[in-house]
């Protein structure tokens, strides 16, 4: 009980700060839409072609958006050594991990909830199916599970912004592949059963990396 109330306090603090500044959601959203538009130029907007590459575009965009927003997550904590202040609070290190992760998850889901209709509109696709929503939510959980861990690692290095993508992309390859393939099937109107092997991979990834990150997080923030 106490665990979750502290977790929510940390997530609430991040959300409040985000409402004040709109630093993450607004800028990442603009970035996301720009990337979609640029991809549109790259593939010269032929409807048949678009249907072929749309899932790839979607997930490349979301993966980039994830890196951008996750990078901010711990940079905020480094100003005025707020992370030290958090670590002095009578909570376990895991509470900090889960709280930061939930806040990032919330931000990413808000960004995606706005970007997906924009994507549907610009590419003339019906993306708002329950299948696609399930894929998006489960993949985003995987993104923030490892992303929060690596974000905490990256802020303690010399090249903050560079380190996160170098770590994040190779590790998340399996869920990026799965999300692209599952989205392709979902856009083609395939039933759940066809999607399930991909969703299983994403689900397995989520569970494993939530657990591993939960276990090793303390080592990253403690000197």
């Amino acid at each position: 009980m106490n665990f979750w109330s502290k977790v929510l306090t940390i997530a609430w603090k991040d959300a409040l700060s985000e409402i004040r500044t709109r630093e993450i959601i607004f800028s990442v959203l603009v970035f996301t839409l720009l990337v979609i538009v640029i991809f549109n130029f790259a593939f010269s907007a032929n409807q048949q072609m678009i249907e072929l590459v749309a899932p790839g575009i979607l997930w490349v965009t979301f993966a980039f958006a994830g890196v951008l927003s996750l990078n901010r997550s711990f940079i905020m904590e480094k100003e005025q050594a707020c992370l030290d202040g958090l670590m002095m609070c009578p909570v376990s290190r895991e509470v900090i991990y889960v709280g930061k992760m939930l806040a990032s998850l919330l931000f990413m889901l808000v960004i995606e909830a706005i970007a997906l209709p924009g994507f549907a509109f610009l590419f003339n696709l019906a993306v708002l199916s329950p299948q696609l929503i399930a894929i998006t939510v489960s993949t985003t959980i995987g993104f923030v599970a490892v992303g929060t861990l690596f974000s905490a690692l990256a802020v303690n290095t010399k090249a903050r912004e560079m380190v996160l993508p170098i770590l994040f992309f190779p590790i998340t390859v399996p869920i990026i592949i799965s999300a692209v393939q599952a989205s392709k099937l979902a856009l083609a109107g395939e039933p759940w059963t066809k999607l399930s092997p991909w969703l299983q991979i994403i689900g397995t990834f989520d569970i494993i990396f939530l657990a591993v990150s939960f276990l090793v997080f303390a080592f990253i923030i403690e000197e």
Binding site: K13, L16, S17, R20, T21, M76, E79, Q80, A81, C82, D84, G85, M88
Partner: peptide, 9 residues
């Protein structure tokens, strides 16, 4: 000497 305070709040 660092405040541990969030400047946006």
């Amino acid at each position: 000497h660092q405040t541990f305070l969030y400047s946006n709040l």
